[in-house]
Every structure is written in structure tokens, then in C-alpha cells.
């Protein structure tokens, strides 16, 4: 049996997950649009890879088209997942501002950790479901060679990557608390920088020096590297250990940092009177 405070936390956790689910259901048309958009993006990347040989004029044997296609498709699919999780978490404060419910939620007798865990749990679940739909539709359209893939390694990298990703999302969700006027724009800009710097469609070594520095600081870089290594080259757990270690270390830093920063930003917003809808 759960104690009373734990039971209250459990109810609140379910409340946040259920609220997010209800919002998705009510805005189903938008969700359908985003799903189609994700699917089209992944398919475009897949066909771009398929056409590389003729469009790029590469001599036979110079470019492994199947490998390039797999490389790009994994990037596109992972970005579809990672960006949904990142957006769902980082937009949680923003949504409450749009709806005008932020004060109501922040006034409820619920620990912020429970609040954020509820939002993150939904984000991960929803991100997985949407990505699996895209995966199920897109992969049969391409003749992908996954005979060497180590699915267990890929899955472990994906699970471990969740922790730093959640930390990063919580850090981004702080921005609308810091600046009601410009926080939303900054969150979207941050997502764009992650796309550029994390090597979604190319190895990060092709990036200029300063952007490469950002790449090594992004957990998505290690997620992509580890999963690509596992699925394309069949790297086992030992071989993806450096990526796993980097992700664990980043999780250890980013998760508490995100929570501490959120707490600090909430206190700042309360000190400056920024929680109000109008800001």
C-alpha cells in the first residue's frame, strides 16, 4: 500500500499524463498533420538517399548507396523521436501560458518533480508511438539491409539517451519561465541548433570547429552515433560503451541541472511576478 503523500503523488503523476493525452486527442487534427509531416520528412530523406547515385554522379563503387540510405533514414527517424520528446517537454510551460492555466497548475499541492516526471513520461511514450508509426510505414518502402544490426545495443542506447534528453528538455522548458515574451522563440531556436549540431544527417566531423564543439556537448550526437553503430555496423554493447558512458555522464549532469534550474526559474518568476498569463 502507498502512503498518503505517495498516493497523492501517484494521482498527480497520472493527472499530468492523462491531461497531455486528452490535449493530444482534442488537437488530433494538428497531431495528424505533424505525423504526416514527420512521415514526409523521413520519406524525403530516404528518397534523397536513393537518388544520390544518379543526382550526385557518383561512380559505381565510390558510394555505398544502401549504407548512405540507412545512415540518413536512421538520422531522420531518430530526429523524429528526439525532437518530439524535446518539444513535448520544453513546450509544457509554454502550453500552460497559452491556455492560461499556468498559475492554476503551479498553485496545486504537487511537487515540481512529480509534475515534470508526468510530462516527461507522456512525452517519451507519445514520441515512441508516433515514431513507431512512421517507422512502420516508411521502412517497408526501402530495401534496408539490417542483417548486421545489433538491436539490443541500439535499444540500450535509446533508453540511456532518454535521461540526458529529458534533462535538456527540462532546461529548455525553463526559457518561457525566464522570459514570457521571448522564451518560446528561444526554445524553437534551441531545437534548430540541436538539429544542426548533432549530426542528424551527416557526421559531425564535417562541421566547422565551433559547431563541432557544440556537437560534442549535445547528447543527441552520442545517441545518433551509438544507434547508427549498432544498426549499421552491428556494434555490440562493448563497442558502443563510449557513447553509453557519455550519455550516462550527461544524464547525471543534465537531469539534476534541469530540475535545479527549473526550481530557480520558478522562484525567479514568482519574485518578478512573471507567472501571470499576460506576463
Amino acid at each position: 500500500m502507498l502512503s498518503v503523500p505517495l498516493r497523492a503523488d501517484a494521482h498527480a503523476f497520472v493527472g499530468f499524463v492523462e491531461r497531455q493525452k486528452n490535449l493530444i486527442r482534442r488537437y488530433w487534427l494538428w497531431e495528424a498533420v505533424w505525423l504526416v509531416y514527420s512521415l514526409v520528412s523521413v520519406l524525403s530523406i530516404g528518397y534523397l538517399a536513393a537518388g544520390l547515385g544518379s543526382a550526385g554522379g557518383a561512380a559505381p563503387g565510390r558510394l555505398d548507396l544502401h549504407r548512405a540510405q540507412l545512415y540518413l533514414l536512421i538520422g531522420a527517424l531518430l530526429w523524429a523521436y528526439l525532437s518530439i520528446v524535446f518539444m513535448e517537454i520544453s513546450f509544457s510551460v509554454m502550453w500552460e501560458r497559452w491556455e492560461g492555466t499556468i498559475e492554476y497548475t503551479f498553485m496545486a499541492p504537487v511537487r515540481r518533480l512529480t509534475h515534470l516526471l508526468g510530462v516527461c513520461a507522456f512525452a517519451i511514450g507519445y514520441g515512441l508511438v508516433r515514431t513507431l508509426v512512421v517507422l512502420a510505414i516508411s521502412v517497408p518502402l526501402f530495401h534496408l539491409d539490417l542483417s548486421r544490426a545489433d538491436a539490443v545495443s541500439a535499444l540500450v542506447v535509446l533508453v540511456v539517451s532518454t535521461f540526458p534528453l529529458v534533462g535538456l528538455g527540462v532546461l529548455a522548458s525553463v526559457l518561457p519561465l525566464l522570459s514570457p515574451e521571448r522564451g518560446e522563440q528561444m526554445t524553437v531556436a534551441m531545437q534548430g541548433i540541436l538539429l544542426l549540431a548533432s549530426g542528424v544527417y551527416y557526421p559531425v566531423t564535417v562541421l566547422p570547429g565551433p559547431v563541432q564543439a557544440m556537437a560534442w556537448a549535445s547528447p543527441m550526437t552520442y545517441t545518433l552515433d551509438g544507434i547508427r553503430g549498432a544498426l549499421i555496423e552491428g556494434r555490440g554493447l562493448a563497442a558502443v560503451a563510449p557513447d553509453l558512458l557519455a550519455l550516462v555522464l550527461m544524464g547525471v549532469v543534465l537531469l539534476p541541472l534541469g530540475l535545479l534550474t527549473f526550481g530557480w526559474a520558478e522562484r525567479r518568476a514568482k519574485r518578478l511576478g512573471l507567472l501571470k498569463r499576460s506576463g
Binding site: G15, L23, T101, E103, T105
Partner: peptide, 23 residues
């Protein structure tokens, strides 16, 4: 300003309130 998720039904808003108040 009644603070609700306007697209959700009154019932969904009330269940959400009950849950975050620990019931």
C-alpha cells in the same frame, strides 16, 4: 479569467484538478 484547458471538456478539467490535488 477561469483558468481551464479550453479545448478539454469541463469533466476532463475537473478530473485533472482532482488528480493534481491528490485524489
Amino acid at each position: 479569467e477561469a483558468a481551464f484547458f479550453k479545448e478539454l471538456s469541463a469533466w476532463e478539467n475537473l478530473v485533472y484538478a482532482a488528480r493534481i490535488y491528490g485524489t
